[in-house]
Design a protein around this nucleic acid. Structure first.
Lengths: 319, 319
DNA sequence: CTGAAAGCGCTTACAG
DNA sequence: CTGAAAGCGCTTACAG
């Protein structure tokens, strides 16, 4: 099988302790010894067993950054991942992607026995035992597109984004307004809706209702069509572009002149002329990469948490 | 720190060997002992150290499937990943994504010390030492959308796909034909082009030229525009839809009536009315998941390699 | 500068 | 059924 430190010791004639010192670059060995040991190691094609090293040192190597996210196939997540890869290139760090999916525990079990310098948590709040586990492994983490008191994060201002959507509909003279959102109660949805309501609240004669559907273009289509036929609504703010595409279709199929605004600015939004609140996932990813590398490289323990807020932008395509 | 098997032994009054046996479900322990040991383990919140277990057993747990790919942000790759997640759900296996990016060695170093039941290699041929490493870890692999003599794979028939593209252009009465492809010399590009040429070869008066550009819509746009202005070309087959989008734009900007066909059927192709050769990444992913799980569950060593070929389909949008 | 020994947390024959 | 011991591959004081 694979050569071990013992084989090198036997063949070179030194003790395993000495061999270990050479291999770890300790200065307390003579040049001749070092040369000989290294020579034998090369001949044997020695590759250190990291398992054993980790077991005895209790520490993990630090060349890998992990990113953990709830759903890898989500478009915006993907854009962020792309940005992270760009930001990490030439940094000496590589990236491992963990999709939580259905079995969060399994995934964290894997993380526990993997080696990470740092972790980016995309959209997903970490439990306290998970944070603690990361700390035991000396690895730091930063939230991406999620924020929490006392933790580092880089995120978009969703409250502001909701406000932008509101001002768009107001500008188009909508008074009977509808919010169609994802059923999942997330921080982002809460903040977008709060910002939306806040911007609407000062105005006279505005009515707002909320409808929740599955994260699914079809579901959004059906809901929008129903509302349009009921005949009151003048403008709809969709939680995200994926849903808004269904709204756009409902508008077209019903021949209505209703106003529609989405969120994210996915590629299709451009093709189909959907007004939306734009967030730049690539940028978020790049910044996240830079930040986690900085954090990981810093010798000192977690200083003050760093929190960076990015501002979304309204794209008016007159939809 | 965390409780170890030794702590349990001390507190329960048994030896570490007995504790280990209980924890591993050995039948050679009395029910009373088992109960007591388990009780103490629970009190101490004992969690086994997999590192130590792996070190001594030399085997890796087998609950995780890995997928390795050259570029995670590629659209088609993503679709496949989505399919794999679907196919894996409720199978008891979870998925870890490895993006090779720039440092392949680093990534494989990580794989080496991670635990995998099996690996899916998307698009990317494995080196022999990498295969060997996987074997040492008792983990099997299957190629996805790539195939190689003597190895298991699930892939699309790109030769056939190229043929479909050719018949499309012939059907639209194109004679001066151009292929615009990615510069990267991949198995897929070779096969698509071969199939394309093969279908063209029987015909009279057909001329074919090939142009290679960066994998970039802009580059494709520029190349297509140049060719259109030169005035000879009647039909272009683009290696993939990403490039074909540039061609579509060149066609529009120049007011030309040239014919364009792409490959993949990405979302934008539908919106923009691009004719293309469709491959279903979701399906490929699902099948891949099913196959690797079957392979991993099979006790016996690699029987005959299994190779599955999927057929692409022409989508005529009259572009 | 170097060797011998103890130990990281666990498993597994070997006795009893 | 259970304990004591050896060992997985490596590191690190401790002597010398």
């Amino acid at each position: 099988m694979a050569a071990t430190i013992k084989d090198i010791a036997r063949i070179s004639g030194f003790g395993v302790g000495t061999v270990s010192r050479v291999l770890n670059g300790s200065p307390r060995v003579s040049p001749e010894t070092r040369a000989r040991v290294l020579e034998v190691a090369r001949e044997l094609r020695y590759r250190p067993n990291k398992l054993a090293k980790m077991l005895v040192t209790g520490r993990f190597p630090d060349t890998t950054i992990g990113i953990i996210l709830p759903l890898i196939t989500h478009r915006f997540s993907l854009e962020i991942i792309g940005g992270i890869y760009s930001g990490l290139s030439r940094s000496g760090y590589n990236l491992l992607v963990f999709n939580l999916g259905k079995d969060r525990e399994q995934v964290f079990e894997h993380i526990r026995y993997s080696h990470f310098a740092g972790l980016l948590a995309l959209l997903d709040p970490l439990k306290s035992e998970e944070k603690q586990m990361l700390e035991e492994h000396h690895s730091r983490f930063i939230y991406l597109d999620y924020h929490e008191q006392g933790e580092s994060s880089i995120h978009y201002d969703h409250f502001r984004g909701g406000g932008l959507a509101a001002s768009y509909l107001l500008h188009k003279n909508c008074r009977n307004i509808l919010f169609i959102g994802d059923r999942a109660d997330t921080q982002q949805r809460r903040e977008r809706l709060e910002g939306f309501k806040d911007a609407l609240s000062g105005r006279e004669g505005i009515s707002l209702r909320e409808v929740y559907v599955e994260h699914d273009e079809e579901a959004a289509y059906a809901a929008a069509l129903r509302e349009i036929h009921a005949g009151r609504v003048e403008g709809i703010f969709f939680y995200c572009d994926d849903l808004a595409l269904g709204g756009l279709r409902a508008k077209r199929d019903s021949g209505s002149s209703i106003r529609i605004v989405g969120y994210d600015d996915i590629q299709a939004a451009g093709y189909l002329g959907l007004s939306t609140v734009r967030q730049d996932g690539d940028r978020l990813g790049r910044l996240g990469a830079r930040q986690i590398v900085e954090l990981v490289r810093a010798e000192a323990a977690p200083h003050e948490p760093v929190s960076l807020t990015l501002q979304p932008e309204l794209i008016d395509r007159n939809s």
